[in-house]
Every structure is written in C-alpha cells, then in structure tokens.
Simulated assay, not measured.
Amino acid sequence: MVLFTLILATLLLLLLLFLIVRPKPVSIPIKNRHVFISGGSSGIGLALAQKAVSEGARVSLLARSLHKLKEAQKSIREVYGVDVAIFSADVRDHSAVERAVAESGPIDVLVVNQGIFVPGALENQASEVIKSVINVNLTGSFNVITAALPSMKNRKDGAPASIALMSSQAGQVGIYGYSAYSATKFGLRGLAEALQQELISDNIHVSVIYPPDTQTPGFEQERKIRPELAGIIMGSGGGALSAEEVAKKSLDGIKSGSFSIWFNLEGYMLGFSGAGFSPQTSFPVAFLEIVFAGLSRLAALFFLWSWYRIIQKKHAN
C-alpha cells in the first residue's frame, strides 16, 4: 500500500509538472542559421564556433583582438573549409558593438561569452580592476544583448531563437577570492530570468551556462595567481573540462532551449538546491529539482562547513 501510494504520488506530480512547467520545451535549429558569439576568438567561444560550424551554422565572432580573431578564423577555415565573419570591438563600447552586430546581419542564436577574471580578495583589489570586471562581464553583456535584440525580434523565418549567457559555477556559489567575478556571474542569472519573461512572446529562449573550471588559454595562468585558499577550496571540485566538452554540452543545451545548463555533479547539486524561480523547460528535470532540493541543500551545507573550517584554520596560523 505504501509503495502504491508513493508511485501514485510520483505519477501525479509528474503529470502536474507536465502541465505547469514553463516555458514549453522547444527545439532551436542551428543549421543554416546565424550564430553570433562574443568573446569568440579563443577558449570556450572558439570551441563553440567550431561546433556550430560543424553543424552547418553561419558564424560570426566578436572580440577585442583582431589578431586573435584572424587566428581563430584561419583555424576554422583550415579544419572545416568555411569562413566565419570576424568583428573587432570592445563589449564595453555599446556603439562599437552595435556597428558590429549591424554589419553581421540578423542573429538567430546569440552567445554572450566574453568575460575576464582577476583573482584576489576584495580588499586587495583596486577599484579600477573591480570596475573592469563588472564592465566586461555584466555591462558588456547588456551591450551585446541590446545591440542584437532588434534584429532578433524582427527575424523573418519565425523559428525559435536563443540568447545564451556564459556564467560559471562561480555564478552558482561564491568562492573565496572571487568576489567581483561571482557578483557579475550571479548577475547574469537575474538578467536571464527577467529577460526570458520579456522575450518569450517573441519565441526567443534564454539559457544560462554554468561551466566549471575549463582548460582555456587563461586557465593555467588563473590557477597560478589564485589566492591560496581559493585553490584549496576549489581543489575539491575535480579536474577541469576541455573547452570542446563545454562547447558540446552548451550547444546541446541551447538547441533544446534549456534555461540552466550544468556540467558535473557539483553543477547539478548547486542547480537543484538553488533553482528557486528559474524557468524550467523539462518536467523530468523539474521533478529532480523538487526531489533532490533538500538533499542538495544538505550536501551544500557540508561543503560550506568544510570550506569555513579551511578558512578558519588558515587564518588561525
């Protein structure tokens, strides 16, 4: 009887979630559509460009360094035999971004990928450094999105479109030495949640991508200059993923219209424990969020317990 009741309750919950989960599931086509990637000259952005090109997309890349953009363009041409469009602009300059977007043509899939990270405890960081992180990671995201929105809303094919924001696991949980960076990456979630409500009637679907440590050109340098405590705390999170792994899962999530895109056990745990009012297109995933929310929160409290012990021990020496 208990088992029957449990099964019935599970089925009723799944049925309820099927009826109420929003936005509705969607398939976003990539082939023969325009994918525009900011921060696309290296790392995850370049890997995403390569993956999108391999699936038949027309790709445009935006970054500050024209030299790096040309290298990225050449690498894609050599492997796939096609050219991607490149645009040199600083995302902090709204006018420059607008010109690049206008020249690139109407966008179907926008990946807002640019970002910088300067590790260090907040008290040791100059205000200019903090402003730079905020202006590139957060203000720059607003600039790219607002530049692209008019053409995205007026696209002719009527097919679903996408805006994907590259956050980080540091946008799911604050980490020692990541104060400014985490603030910007947490901010992207708030932007995405509100933006999805504003754009759903235009059939534009928003995704937030939460990659863990990823093997990119700046990753090894970042690890060298992280505060010691950050390295100790983050050392418990497992090895870094390749940019190609992150790109593949990111693009798969974008194509399925997923609002939150996670990569490993820690990412799912953080996602389940902090889902809150985030949109959810998959009713099975919504079911898992409900079932595991309490356990994920308990696991999070154990992690925090160990982190604060590490911090306390370090400062006691």
Rank of each mutant, 00 (worst) to 15 (best):
I107S: 11
A293L: 11
I261S: 05
G257H: 10
I225S: 07
A316T: 04
Y268D: 14
K31D: 11
G276R: 01
T5E: 08
V26I: 15
I204H: 09
S282F: 07
S88W: 12
I254P: 13
A243P: 10
V91I: 07
L122F: 15
A180T: 04
P217M: 15
E222H: 01
I209T: 05
K68A: 02
G276H: 04
K313G: 10
S207A: 01
G190E: 07
L3H: 06
D83N: 11
G40C: 03
L229E: 06
K313H: 06
A85K: 14
S256Y: 07
E193T: 06
R77G: 04
H94C: 12
P150N: 06
L12P: 09
M166R: 02
Y178Q: 07
A230V: 01
K313I: 01
I7E: 13
N135P: 15
L110G: 08
K70E: 09
L17A: 05
N113I: 12
A243S: 06
E98S: 13
A286Y: 11
D83C: 14
A180W: 14
S282H: 14
P160H: 04
K68E: 12
L165F: 10
K31A: 12
R64Y: 01
R189C: 00
E193M: 00
L304I: 08
D252M: 10
D108T: 00
T5Y: 14
Q197L: 13
Q125L: 09
A180C: 08
A147D: 04
A159W: 11
L229H: 00
F186P: 05
L110C: 12
G56H: 01
L15C: 08
V206G: 01
A300H: 13
K153A: 14
W307K: 04
R297K: 03
G187M: 06
